[in-house]
């Protein structure tokens, strides 16, 4: 079990990543509408989950 958040620097990086995540969703909603935002939300969430799983198994 490797803890992904262990210091202030990692927390800071998390802020930036989350900002990007929500910016993408909000942008999709503003430009293309709610359905597109939902698609972006699901796609990004799956991508993040996959990335976490891969990082875990690599560690």
């Amino acid at each position: 079990m490797l803890n992904p958040l262990r210091s202030e620097a990692e927390a800071f990086r998390f802020v930036l990543l989350l900002l990007g995540y929500f910016a993408a969703i909000v942008l999709a909603k503003a430009v293309l509408g709610t359905t597109a935002a939902l698609v972006v939300f699901v796609a990004l969430s799956v991508a993040v989950a996959a990335w976490i799983v891969r990082a875990r198994s690599a560690a």
Binding site: E8, A11, F12, F14, V15, L18, L19, F22, I25, V26, K29, A30, A37
Partner: peptide, 17 residues
Amino acid sequence: HFVDVMWIVVYATIYLL
């Protein structure tokens, strides 16, 4: 940073989406 993170979520869900 946590306070910041929570605000990004609150702002996105309450104001924007």
